[in-house]
Write a protein that binds this DNA or RNA. Structure first.
Lengths: 235, 235
DNA sequence: GCAGTAAGTTAGGACGGCCTAAAATCAAAT
DNA sequence: ATTTGATTTTAGGCCGTCCTAACTTACTGC
């Protein structure tokens, strides 16, 4: 059966509103692409907690809508339109997270879930008003960069704490945002964006790392450390 | 009387999350019931801009879920559970409207549409935080009462300006909230909740009313006046 | 070069929410 | 009591999003 596009020649004049699931797919695909490679069906399925077969179906619909380039058995890549939509959703998500923390007293461990729903129903106007109400933040509460209104984003890659050189001093720039339990734990360790850390030791075979945060010394597992992104302390 | 945890009849009446369309139906049905009568299929269809046949179908699903009592060809009434859900949605809607106006500088003519979407994805926590951030308002920007967290609402009926006695002085308590154009016009007339009005004349045959708002005298059509609810100036 | 496995796709089905067209029911007037 | 007109319901579809089961393709190691 051939994949056939209807109205293939249309110059795509109006950006029809995307459904919530579509926005979620695009966000997921964007995340995989940012890490280098095209998004595999299974990857997407796992990330969205969906059966792989469902992804196959949806991905073809996304291709029909011109949001992704799709080759059977080869994974998908975002088109320019798809990327634009993904970044728009990402902006919504992160602005909402920042706003909830800064304006409504949410903890950084509970904003992700709320933003995950609101991002699909907030208007651009609302997002812009929220952003300006809290001073146009550049990152969300977990340090993730917020795409601009115009759809650009600062995606400079960061080293993870797990890969840092023993003895070096670093500054935490970003941490994983999804797992509330992990976030509460990071918080208890004082590992928040902006904080200075010194990596004083790393046990072999992916063993725990010894770090110094402020005046206290802590041990953290390699898995956790890999979710903490750092930059050189200087900048 | 002792309130007892009921395990007698049902194991667990878990309040499954309702879909957005379901919440919209319940809100609509609530609105008709508040005005006296059971909600007719056609009424609901018109209010939601949906074909009557679709309403028949949905209403049966609502009945299956125990949200409405339904008798063929007889219209629907909310059950206790349905009413609870409707009021919860109404609270969300109105808190959101109030928050957008008071905290984010929205005009009262543009909040309805935004709230109409957000009400379905905001958590109870968010709504409560919004409410407390703006001082637990009792009404939305159009004067509509906000149901409490516990699901009670002040539904004291109000006279419309169109029915007021000529010569009487009234206080505007509430205006229609849906039509942005009407809201802008009301605003230009100074007809906002809390404002004092004197009805100085009414032309016969549903003709225009002459009103005095502050020091200016205005003419308004009967249709518009009927959307403005007033109370005696005294209280 | 080929077999075994992992990954991906198709087939077929379900469900919610909408539609139109046709049939059924109710209410009101003759 | 019957007819008529309005209201409502049923019948039959469509679309989007998901599912499981079965099949196909790609990859990897021999």
């Amino acid at each position: 059966m051939t994949v056939r596009k209807k109205k293939a020649t249309r110059p795509a004049p109006r950006p029809e509103p995307l459904t919530a699931p579509v926005e979620d797919y695009l966000k997921a695909i964007y995340a995989f692409e940012r890490d280098g490679h095209a998004a595999a069906t299974n990857d997407i399925a796992q990330r969205l907690s969906i059966a792989p077969a469902s992804v196959s179906g949806m991905v073809q619909r996304l291709a029909d809508q011109g949001l992704v380039a799709y080759e059977r058995y080869r994974g998908v890549r975002l088109t320019a339109a798809g990327r634009r939509a993904a970044l728009r959703t990402l902006r919504r998500h992160r602005v909402i997270e920042a706003y909830l923390v800064q304006a409504l007293g949410y903890g950084w461990d509970s904003v992700h879930e709320e933003a995950e729903r609101l991002e699909h129903s907030a208007s651009d106007t609302l997002i812009d008003r929220m952003a300006s109400a809290i001073g146009e933040p550049l990152t969300d509460p977990h340090g993730a960069p917020i795409p601009t209104r115009e759809g650009t984003i600062d995606e400079t890659p960061h080293e993870s704490l797990a890969d840092a050189e023993v003895g070096s001093r670093k500054r935490v720039v970003r941490v994983g945002d999804e797992d509330p339990g992990m976030l509460r734990y990071l918080d208890s360790l004082g590992l928040r964006p902006g904080v200075e850390v010194r990596l004083t030791d790393r046990a072999p075979f992916d063993g725990p790392l010894t770090i110094q945060v402020g005046s206290t010394t802590q041990q953290v597992g390699a898995a956790l450390a890999s979710r903490v992104l750092v930059a050189s302390s200087a900048e």
